[in-house]
Amino acid sequence: MNKFVFLISCSLGALIFFSGCNGIGMQPEAKKPEVVQKVIVQKASKKDIEKIIKDEKLAFYNNIPDKEFSVYGEGIAPMNTVSPAQAVALAKRAAVADAYRQLGEKLYGVQVNSKETIKDASLRDSRIETRVNGLIKNATITETSYKDGLYTVRMVLKMSGKRWKEIFSY
């Protein structure tokens, strides 16, 4: 038993001797300064961005080509008019309206609605409705012609590349 107690006391002594106190970890740690990152959220308006692009003279801002749209509108002279002059005037009015409609379709697209009625496994009624909504400014009529009761106009809409980008880049 003495050998056993002696062996335990020697191992405890060796353990205390080798684990010793070297002073590391005994001193309080010096606090490291915390790194605080400041995040600044800033909203930029469209005018600010345009000004930055102009000031930096970025190539893509100045190289937007001008856009030109051309359509042909057609109008038919009605048969029941007071005079031939009235028939020509109404045909021209219809041709101009048709040209504006075509420009609207090119610029803004067309909304299409349809409805079909089926009875006894056969088609009874089919209706298709198209609609165009848009604002067209500064379109010019470049050519007109009237032949055999058909009035034709050529309408052109010119738009700067910058204006095109502002309106239609979505």
Rank of each mutant, 00 (worst) to 15 (best):
168 F>C: 03
97 A>N: 14
133 N>C: 00
43 K>S: 14
95 A>K: 03
80 N>A: 09
121 A>R: 09
142 T>Y: 03
40 I>E: 11
63 N>F: 02
121 A>D: 15
51 K>Q: 14
170 Y>A: 12
142 T>E: 09
127 R>L: 10
87 A>R: 10
15 L>H: 03
54 K>V: 08
114 S>F: 08
121 A>H: 05
85 A>V: 15
61 Y>G: 01
89 A>N: 07
36 V>T: 10
122 S>C: 03
138 N>S: 08
72 Y>K: 07
68 E>A: 13
157 L>I: 11
64 I>C: 03
78 P>T: 02
21 C>K: 03
26 M>Y: 08
96 V>C: 01
20 G>M: 05
32 K>E: 14
38 K>Q: 12
73 G>M: 07
132 V>H: 00
97 A>P: 00
50 E>V: 09
46 K>S: 08
31 K>I: 12
116 E>G: 05
67 K>P: 03
161 G>W: 03
111 Q>W: 06
57 K>M: 04
114 S>D: 15
119 K>I: 15
123 L>F: 07
104 G>V: 04
98 D>A: 04
142 T>A: 05
122 S>N: 08
93 R>Y: 06
100 Y>H: 11
159 M>V: 14
23 G>F: 06
26 M>W: 08
137 K>M: 05
21 C>S: 07
77 A>R: 02
107 L>R: 02
